[in-house]
């Protein structure tokens, strides 16, 4: 089940044996909340800066599991993923390194949304660069 969802989430047809698995609910917060650090320690910026970016900057593959979260407010999720693009990691690179997965049907929409936020941030970054 996980592999099939991972396939859906990253577009890859292979597993990531050396990947670092991050469970948002267990390792960060069951109740992600807010965009910036000023919104609290469960914010998207806190997740990105403390957990996600250090691994991605080392070139490590990361599997983010959404299972167990109460929900993912868009401000949190956009800042965590779109913010990674704004922090300098291109969407193509994220597609190589990142898998977002869940076994819960209620949360599957957040997998698609996550990639959408990444793509939107990439488009905006390229638009800004061309200007």
């Amino acid at each position: 089940m996980l592999h099939s969802v991972a396939h859906l989430s990253s577009g890859k047809s292979f597993s990531m044996p050396d990947a670092v698995h991050i469970s948002i609910a267990r390792q960060f917060s069951e109740t992600p909340f807010g965009r910036y650090l000023e919104d609290g320690k469960e914010s998207g910026q806190a997740f990105r800066e403390k957990i996600l970016l250090p691994l991605l900057n080392e070139g490590r593959s990361v599997v983010i599991s959404l299972d167990g979260v109460a929900g993912l407010p868009s401000s949190f999720w956009e800042e965590a993923l779109g913010g990674s693009v704004r922090a300098g990691i291109a969407a193509d690179r994220l597609r190589e390194l990142l898998v977002i997965e869940t076994t819960e049907a209620d949360l599957e929409t957040y997998v698609r949304l996550g990639w959408r936020y990444i793509d939107q941030a990439e488009v905006k970054r390229q638009t800004n660069q061309s200007h």
């Binding site: 917060s29 069951e30 109740t31 992600p32 909340f33 807010g34 919104d39 609290g40 320690k41 469960e42 109460a70 407010p73």
Partner: peptide, 8 residues
Amino acid sequence: TKSGTDAL
């Protein structure tokens, strides 16, 4: 609020 526990 600075935490999602209030929402929950």
